[in-house]
Design a protein around this nucleic acid. Structure first.
Ligand code: ZN
Ligand code: ZN
Ligand code: ZN
Ligand code: ZN
Lengths: 161, 161
DNA sequence: TATCTAACGTTATGTCATAACAATCAAGGC
DNA sequence: GCCTTGATTGTTATGACATAACGTTAGATA
């Protein structure tokens, strides 16, 4: 796997795959987090997938490479990656995707294309702030958020227009 | 069922249950939508539940009242309600909730309390606008969105402080 | 080395959701 | 009225997603 950049316009501004992995490794070392073989391989898969993967897709790959063959193996690795900021869960798709910016903590928003199924991580600072403000108006203290938009990506909009 | 107002502070500003149902009926009539017995009963349940209900919870109630006993019965009613703006789906909970403002189309945000499991629908105009803007910056055209915050509601914050 | 804990793997089960098809019902044209 | 047509409701069966519980292994600690 020597891919050094993404292939579609949706990701023109994203870090390339190798760079994402480097950021993740640096962060794991810095925080004393154990990026074990299963976890690391799972993360590599998510990065290479260039989009969202279901837990059972991940499991299939892991099993083919000699790791465990049962669902908890995939779910444990995926949940650990999510909890530690290396990946995100896309609830609308019941799927997971590698974080594009694992170097720093952040709330992410996802742009899900209804036509080509692509998933793009977008900066959600302003959105998160607006949501937090709306919550505060109701006396609600926000810990974390799920923010997902469904529509058409730039490629598919072009095709339709 | 003659409840005319909600019981907890989280909903102090919400329309009361009967009023929500009236709004929904008016809207159905106005738009020529068929609020059939199963659909109407399902909506009433969601309103009375005063929070989110899983599809299988709904199914259990419907079955007990003489409607169908199999999952598609509940899912069809729930999906119809969601598609036509009478209810919302809470993805984080794999559950559904009655729309608090069925009179007009809107993007909703949900405040999910991690302590007491309450779910509150909050106005999401500003949040949706911010998300739409972030999407547009990526050339993405947003159709609809899932916006859910997890944290602690005003009641539970009080208790902890 | 002895001990402790995190991580891994398994079996088994639970929960959520839909495909496919048959029966029924409401509305419009004859 | 009677038939056609599409929407709605019901069923059986299956698929997809996720976790509980427990034993084993591997790394760290003393
Ligand atoms: Zn991220
Ligand atoms: Zn697309
Ligand atoms: Zn609503
Ligand atoms: Zn609460």
């Amino acid at each position: 796997m020597t891919q050094t950049s993404f292939c579609c316009p949706d990701h023109s501004g994203a870090q390339d795959a190798a760079n994402i992995l480097l950021q993740a490794e640096a962060r794991a070392a810095r925080m004393g987090l154990r990026l074990t073989p299963v976890r690391r391989r799972t993360l590599e898969m998510l990065i290479a997938a260039h989009g969202a993967m279901g837990a059972y897709d991940v499991l299939e790959c892991l099993a083919a490479e000699g790791y465990g063959t049962q669902p908890p193996v995939a779910y444990r690795a995926l949940n650990w990656l999510v909890e530690n900021g290396f990946a995100h869960r896309i609830r609308r798709l019941n799927a997971f995707t590698a974080c594009a910016h694992p170097a720093h903590d952040h709330t992410a928003a996802f742009l899900i294309c209804a036509t080509c199924d692509s998933v793009t991580e977008a900066p959600a600072g302003a959105v998160s702030a607006a949501l937090s403000a709306a919550a505060e108006a109701a006396g609600f203290v926000m810990d974390r958020a799920t923010i997902e938009a469904v529509g058409r990506c730039s490629v598919c909009v072009e095709g339709t227009a």
